[in-house]
Design a protein around this nucleic acid. Structure first.
Length: 350
DNA sequence: AATGATCCAAC
RNA sequence: AUUGUUGGAUCAUU
């Protein structure tokens, strides 16, 4: 209540605590449902041009549906705790490296609600995340993570602990995640809603699958929840002085000795269970599409192969369009690609 | 200062 | 057909 405000000392302390807002944390559910917040959430969902969820409603159909009074029903249900999120629609997409990913597509309505939640929770949680965490976070990107690894190697750390947490999110303890959320979210209604999203389930070819453990990927809230889960890992490693960079579920820690590297592994063993874990020389390490050899950041061989294949696909001209348009497409492609992988060419000091 | 579209990458 | 976050490039508009 407002007595929390009266506890705030006047003077210097206030400026140091400007990022903490205990007086508002009970109020988060209202913040989520603010008209302006919902509007920007919808704008984002629409801009993504995503596919329809399990109820088959497309982005084009949504505005009319919402205007017809259905959105009013949704908000009143949300406020009364009666709202039930729909299961996600499971799809399968090929990864560039040949593997498969199976994200779930929430309905348009649920995407708007999740996005609205994410917009409120991100400013609450992101400032508390580790400076060594680079994935899915505002103002941060993969290049920064790669450069971080590069500079750690330059400090003489020759051993890389390479870990892939990609299967980690298939088995996430919902209670533990809710505990982490509860540290900053006091609003019980919001906690309950997020919990419902975790358990909403999956429809795979008309068959319903429970989601008692999995953290379904594909919703606007999912990346933030992933970072909240692995933030405890980051904090633990930092407390012990280990040096690392994490980009979502891709992780690399650099150590000066194999022994220290193995200590890192023990530290994160809870998160690993039986999953892939390695301590290798940094020259054999790979991270976010790059390798680190002779003090340089280089393209990973797989990245080079992918690049060549893409260029060949674009320059194969059996697809009767004008030369001019084709040239435009190739230029567009090269611009974006070089923009990301261009850092390999720079940074050859060391 | 905004906001709309196209595209690229990481996961 | 293919969801999502984040970063970036380009173009366009008041």
């Amino acid at each position: 209540m407002s007595d929390l405000n009266t506890q705030m000392p006047s003077g210097d302390d206030v400026t140091q605590r400007h990022d903490l807002k205990p007086a508002f944390s009970h109020d988060l559910f209202e913040q989520v449902l603010q008209r302006k917040n919902l509007q920007t959430a919808w704008n984002r969902v629409r801009a993504n041009k995503g596919a329809d969820g399990i109820n088959g409603m497309t982005l084009d159909e949504f505005p009319a549906w919402a205007k017809a009074g259905h959105w009013k029903t949704v908000t009143t249900d949300l406020e009364s705790g009666q709202y039930q999120p729909s299961p996600v629609r499971r799809i399968e997409i090929d990864k560039p490296d040949g593997g498969k990913r199976q994200p779930g597509i929430p309905t348009v309505t649920d995407r708007v609600i999740q996005q609205a939640i994410a917009q409120v929770l991100t400013p609450l949680f992101d400032p508390g995340f580790s400076k060594h965490s680079f994935g899915f976070r505002p103002g941060r990107n993969g290049q920064q993570a790669v450069k971080q690894v590069q500079s750690l190697i330059k400090e003489g750390r020759r051993f890389a602990v390479d870990v892939d947490f990609s299967k980690f999110f298939d088995r996430v303890n919902h209670d533990l995640l809710m505990t982490h959320l509860g540290r900053k979210v006091q609003d019980k209604r919001l906690l309950k809603l997020i919990s419902q999203y975790l358990r909403a389930g999956i429809i795979d070819n008309a068959f319903y699958i429970e989601s008692r453990e999995a953290a379904p990927q594909g919703g606007p809230l999912s990346p933030l929840l992933a970072n909240i889960m692995l933030n405890s890992l980051d904090q633990e490693l930092e407390k012990r002085g280990h040096k690392f960079a994490r980009y979502a579920d891709d992780f690399s820690s650099l150590a000066k000795s194999r022994r220290t590297g193995e200590r890192v592994l023990r530290c994160i063993s809870y998160y690993l269970k039986n999953r892939l874990k390695l301590v290798v020389k940094t020259t054999e390490s790979q991270f976010l599409g790059f390798t680190f050899r002779a003090g340089c950041i280089q393209w990973h061989p797989k990245t080079q192969l992918k690049f060549k294949q893409q260029v060949r696909r674009l320059t194969n001209r059996n697809w009767g369009v004008s030369m001019r348009f084709q040239l435009f497409k190739v230029n567009q492609f090269l611009r974006g690609w070089i923009n990301y992988f261009g850092i390999a060419a720079l940074r050859r000091s060391g």
